[in-house]
Computed example of a mutant assay.
Amino acid sequence: MARRKMYQRADGLYEKKITISGKRHVFRAASEREVMQKIAAFQEREERGPSFEEEAVAWWVECEQKIRYGTVHGYQAAMRRAVEYFGQDAVRSVEAADIHAFLLYLAKRGYAHKTVKNQLTVLRQIFLHALMARHIRSLPTDGVSVPAGLSHHSRQLAPDAAIEAIKATGPEDFLLPALILYTGARCGEALALQGGDIDFHASRISINKAVVYHSNQPVISPTKTQKGERTVPLLRPLVKLLAQRGPHRPEEYIIGGAAPITKSALYRRWESFCRAHGLAHVDEERTRRAGRTVWACEIDRHTLRHEYATILYDAGIDKMSAMEFMGHADLATTEKIYTHIRQSRLAGAAAQLDAFLTEKAQ
């Protein structure tokens, strides 16, 4: 029986409509042979499924606008690493063993526990996207965990000199260090505080938003997590510092006035504070490369947030209350910080005891 001639449109193109995987598809080309070649190539792609790179790009296009701005860069870096590794492999061909091998590969390259954990989070989201699109039947990330033995970066507590400098903050000093130390706010949360967020009568501060930076410009966004929206005590040392600067209107930002400060102003004023109080030194290597003097601050903003946790620890505040004050998403984070403080204190006590016995023996 002769093959039915393919439909030819008025513009001269040949066209064929077929149903593949329950969906109607139309193929057009200048000749019947080209149409059949297109159909064969399409069926081959359908059978193979999208590549990992195609799936990752589709996931990113769909989710980018939903990701908090401060998280975007970390997720982008994780996606790029995954695409470099899996590339054109069919997404349905990737198995749990392949993902585990990838995480081990990152570990051997020196990536820390937090980075590898974030990598696994991004992989789970990409494969969940593939599952919802019916490109895979199960999640290959199920049962995969971060390899053991990866380095954990433990943030050091602020030096005593830094705490004393902040306690001595004057009317002309940059207020941000004291604001973080006495509220435990993340830097962006502290920068977003307005006069209306501070209730002097009830002695409390409402933390309900944060500043993030798009290039150099500040943008108001939600807090890092839902738990980030919280109320913390207004401590007396901070009351005194705020009183020195006069009353703030409800809409006025505590730092910045009519609007939050820019990113460059944040860095410049933080460096000035550190230099003024002997908490910065010249970074010789960066100075040599830049051809100008580059200063390195000896305290960072997140260190002071951890110092607030130390204040809670020393005051005997229970872990659940500390979790609420710090705005942690789960208790494990608070417990980890409390454990680090305790271990640091024990290490210091051991060194003190050893020095005492050494001195006695001399």
Rank of each mutant, 00 (worst) to 15 (best):
G256E: 00
R236C: 04
E229F: 08
A315C: 14
R186F: 02
V294E: 02
E252V: 05
R301D: 08
N118V: 01
E46L: 06
V83Q: 04
A329F: 11
Q125Y: 09
P147T: 05
A56G: 02
H135A: 01
R288A: 14
S203T: 12
K319E: 11
D318I: 14
G246S: 07
M132R: 07
G87A: 13
D142Y: 00
V239P: 01
G327F: 04
A165Q: 00
H135Y: 01
H100T: 11
I99R: 01
R28E: 11
R288I: 12
Q37N: 14
E64W: 13
A355H: 06
V282C: 10
P159M: 05
H214W: 15
E252F: 00
N216Q: 12
V57S: 04
Y182H: 09
V239Y: 03
G70E: 08
L120I: 06
L242N: 07
Q8N: 14
K17C: 14
I317T: 15
F273Y: 08
E62M: 12
P218Y: 01
A332T: 12
A162H: 01
T225D: 12
L353H: 08
A161P: 00
F52W: 01
A361V: 06
T121F: 07
H328Y: 09
L106H: 02
A30F: 15
R92D: 05
E34H: 12
P140I: 03
H328A: 07
E32Q: 13
L304Q: 06
G291H: 05
E189L: 00
S145L: 03
T310R: 11
L346Q: 14
E55Y: 02
R33L: 01
C274N: 04
A41F: 09
W270F: 10
Y85T: 09
I220R: 06
R124W: 07
V72Y: 10
Q156I: 15
H113N: 00
G110I: 08
E32D: 14
I99S: 06
N208H: 02
Q244A: 15
R268I: 05
T310K: 13
R230V: 10
Y75N: 00
H248G: 02
T333H: 06
R81T: 01
K209Q: 09
K17S: 15
L128Y: 05
Q88I: 10
I255A: 04
Q76D: 12
P218L: 04
G228L: 05
L312V: 10
A192L: 08
E298D: 15
P177M: 02
H152G: 10
R345T: 15
W59H: 03
A315W: 13
V94E: 02
L266H: 07
D173A: 09
H328Q: 12
A133K: 04
N216M: 12
K263A: 10
E32T: 14
I311S: 11
V35G: 00
H135D: 01
T19G: 09
P250T: 03
R4N: 13
Q156C: 13
A190I: 08
R48T: 14
A77N: 06
E44K: 11
D173H: 06
A161G: 04
R286C: 06
A276G: 07
E95H: 03
